[in-house]
Amino acid sequence: MNIEEVDSRLREGVPGGVLELHKGPYSPHLVVDAEKIREVCLFLRDDGALRFDYLTHLTGLDCGELLCTVYRALSLLHKRTVAMRAYVPREDPVIDTISDIWASAGWFEREAYDLLGIRYRGHADLRRLLLPEDWEGHPLRKDYVDPLRYQDIDNTRDYGI
């Protein structure tokens, strides 16, 4: 089963869930409706023909107007992966959590929240994962400005270049 077949199966199971099939030689993926992300993920996991039982990866992207969460799931039974993207508006980047569907999403969502500020609605413990708790801003956003100090540490240095 290739990505087209996953796409058609998913369109049958969750009407309106898939917005677009993004083909191409490099990393084909499905663009899914952010509102329906939970339905899509549940269907991917539980449908007999799909059985994506393992979320290998979840990350975020800054796409300008939109912020994007990238999902990659793996079916150990059918030996197949699928990549999905869900876009949320930059002003209000909220999307439902999938950490109760695939437990491995828990820390990934915390990381994406930490670095990009995407908020995962319903996440049990949405704190920063890598940066200190009192850090301001989300560094992987394109408009992030590097801080010159952190607490009482002056973090500037003249390298003479």
């Binding site: 940066l131 560094p139 590097d146 540490i153 002056d154 240095r157 390298y159």
Partner: peptide, 17 residues
Amino acid sequence: SGGLFAYAYSVLKGIDK
């Protein structure tokens, strides 16, 4: 001095700070 990572947002620019 921070070395290779001197311009990373999260790295201290030298321990003598």
